[in-house]
Design a protein around this nucleic acid. Structure first.
Lengths: 101, 101
DNA sequence: CTATCGCATAGACAAATATCTATGTGAGGT
DNA sequence: ACCTCACATAGATATTTGTCTATGCGATAG
């Protein structure tokens, strides 16, 4: 997973509605109708958000009859977390080769 | 750290330039001039990006003389990662109380 | 004191985004 | 066959965002 993919996922998580949706999917898959109940948005707006979450790879969709069931893609989520964990933190330690002291 | 703060950080990381900047700060603080060398953007644009990174809490700034030295805020980064790690992944497992099967 | 250097701020602008209403589509029920 | 239900798509619109040029400001050098 490259920086471009990570940035795409971050943009997807950068909307509080979508972040909450991901949080709700934490305990297993949910249908769109169930998700819709929790937010003050219209159905097309939810559909738009879900499309963004699916397109960045964070969420999978399973269509069954009239319903769409959404769930987290564990593989993508894992890779994303791995990237973030790779951002080690050395704080202010050392001036990284700047001539400016 | 609440969902709003996390969403703010995600928006900040949702730009590939800013994500790369954070990556560069991984090995210690750097001055703005050093960061600027690595990107094809103007100085005011970099300043704009740094402001966003600072305002969301991910990056700290230390001004010394004419120079601004930027570094990661380990505390914020840690809290952010903790939030992400809290997004457990149960995948498709179970239908979360939807009436729709 | 004046000029320069490093960076921030202001303002402009095109592109992306979040939201809505209206409509399309495909599956099930009657 | 028809209607309804669950969701997607289309199009419109206001807001946000990334970038630029031009300018301001504090610190340092001469």
């Amino acid at each position: 997973m490259g920086p471009m993919d990570v940035a795409l996922i971050c943009r997807a998580l950068g909307d509080s509605n979508r972040l909450q949706i991901v949080g709700m999917l934490t305990d297993g898959e949910k249908c769109a109708c169930k998700l819709l109940e929790r937010f003050d948005i219209t159905q097309p707006t939810l559909s738009h958000h879900m499309k963004i979450l699916v397109e960045c790879g964070l969420v999978k969709v399973r269509r069954q009859g009239k319903w769409s069931h959404y769930s987290l893609d564990c593989e993508t989520l894992g890779a994303f977390r791995a990237f973030m964990d790779g951002l080690s933190c050395k704080g202010e330690q050392k001036n990284g080769g700047c001539g400016c002291l």
